[in-house]
Design a binder for these strands. Structure first.
Lengths: 125, 125
DNA sequence: TCACTAATGATAATGCATTATTATTAGCAA
DNA sequence: TTGCTAATAATAATGCATTATCATTAGTGA
């Protein structure tokens, strides 16, 4: 990806602006308003390139397709709304969870996913 | 699944004995020692039946194929060893994580996955 | 503006876990 | 033991996200 194309710009812009991890399909849907002719193949091509350049990273929730967000090298977690199914970043962290593991097991990292209602869906619509 | 077959017995036995969630392929590998002719299709067929009967449940870690364990209706979490890749149950739980969520978000449930070294792989083999 | 060629768009192909198909095997009731 | 048919074994088919192909479009340096 050496040349600066409208498609590339739109894809990166959409991810940077969203403020939450997006599915490839969501990236396509959102970026299509900038570049109507955008193809899903181009989205995948760019996601792959951006990822290998370390500009974005993939976020995978159990049983779901990968989502993509800007790479920030800070430890964080995720919240998924059961209503709108969107995923949001969560900065809080309970810290080391070594105490949760059975004796003899060494905990090196952890992943936490919260499920519930996001702010917008909170009233039950 | 009305009839009691050797295959069915072997599959359920392997899951009950393992004490940890098993991949379909692991179920096949382990149960094959009981029933050498066992087919992967039969494993899938039985997993599906056992699941719809509520006898087992599937455990899905991000980006991985589903694993299966006996259904116990107690809230628990998982630990995956980075060395042997096996998954273990973790009974401990930090409790309600509402405090982790951004304001306005309601947390209804959570999932925690610990990663590290299991007891057997702890010494670095 | 031109030439070169990277990137795109459209779509076919892939990879792979899971499911369907079908001939065969084997529970189980009589 | 026999007959019925559920379950199995082997393998082809599916579903679907992602990747490859290739003709066309459009950046970019000269």
């Amino acid at each position: 990806m050496e040349r600066r194309t409208r498609q590339h710009e739109a894809i990166l812009d959409v991810i940077a602006t969203a403020g939450r991890p997006l599915l490839a399909q969501e990236v396509l849907d959102l970026a299509t308003s900038h570049v109507p002719s955008l193809s899903l193949a181009t989205v995948y091509r760019n996601l792959k390139a951006l990822q290998s350049e370390g500009r974005i990273k993939s976020v995978v929730l159990p049983g779901q397709n990968p989502r993509y967000e800007l790479e920030v090298h800070t430890h964080h977690h995720y919240f998924q709304c059961r209503q709108c199914e969107r995923v949001f970043d969560v900065d809080a962290c309970p810290g080391n969870l070594q105490m949760m593991a059975p004796s003899g097991f060494r905990v090196e990292d952890h992943e936490i996913i919260l499920y519930g209602r996001c702010k917008e869906c909170g009233d039950g619509r």
